[in-house]
Simulated scan of single mutants.
Amino acid sequence: MHNNDDFGFLIQIINRQVFRFFSNAGKSIGISSMEVNILNYFFDNKKKQLYQIDLETAFNIRSSTATANVNLMEKKGLLKRIPDPQDMRRKLLVPTKKAFVLEKELNYFKQQLDFKISNNLSSSEQKELKKMLKKIIKNLKE
């Protein structure tokens, strides 16, 4: 039986709730929760050239999972692969016009979630929580 104060249990509950939120948000615009996350990642990193390896690193997913997601998003017309002018063996991932049409709604969903998470937290508690979450992520990578 789980103790409701275990870190792993609490984080698992939060993970499920965030997944459910983005799943429902994505359904409302015809995309999956992972596609919501990937597109948000692109929109947050507009000034960077992004490759599949960047998705693998950012989301801590296997190459095969990233490939499957990119292939599906390409089929849906949300992403395209283009040759990297610096290295023709590599492919840049670029959101399409169809993806950019969703940007405003995706930003709204992200703001909604941030509000739900931080609603009853002071500014200093929010900063401390972010700091602690980053430490936890680092600890789990080691």
Rank of each mutant, 00 (worst) to 15 (best):
I117T: 00
Q112D: 09
G77V: 03
R90M: 08
F22E: 04
T65D: 11
G26S: 05
D84N: 12
D114T: 12
K97P: 03
I117V: 06
S64L: 11
M132Y: 12
N120M: 10
K98A: 15
V18W: 00
D114C: 07
I82M: 09
R90N: 07
I61V: 14
K134H: 06
I13M: 07
L133A: 12
L10G: 02
M1G: 15
N107K: 12
E125G: 04
K91F: 14
T65P: 05
V36P: 04
K130V: 03
N71V: 13
I11N: 07
S122C: 10
N45M: 02
Q52F: 04
S28E: 14
M73E: 07
E103L: 06
D114W: 02
P85H: 08
I137F: 03
K130C: 06
M132G: 00
V101L: 15
F7V: 15
K91G: 07
Q12W: 13
F43T: 05
N3P: 01
Q111E: 13
Q52T: 14
E128F: 14
I13D: 13
N107E: 12
N37P: 00
D6P: 02
L50C: 05
K131N: 14
T67M: 10
H2K: 09
I82H: 02
K116T: 06
E105C: 02
N139C: 07
E125I: 02
V101W: 04
L133Q: 03
D6W: 09
G30A: 02
N60G: 04
Y108F: 11
N139P: 04
R62S: 12
Q126C: 11
L10T: 05
L55W: 03
N119H: 15
M88V: 14
E105V: 05
N45T: 05
R62H: 09
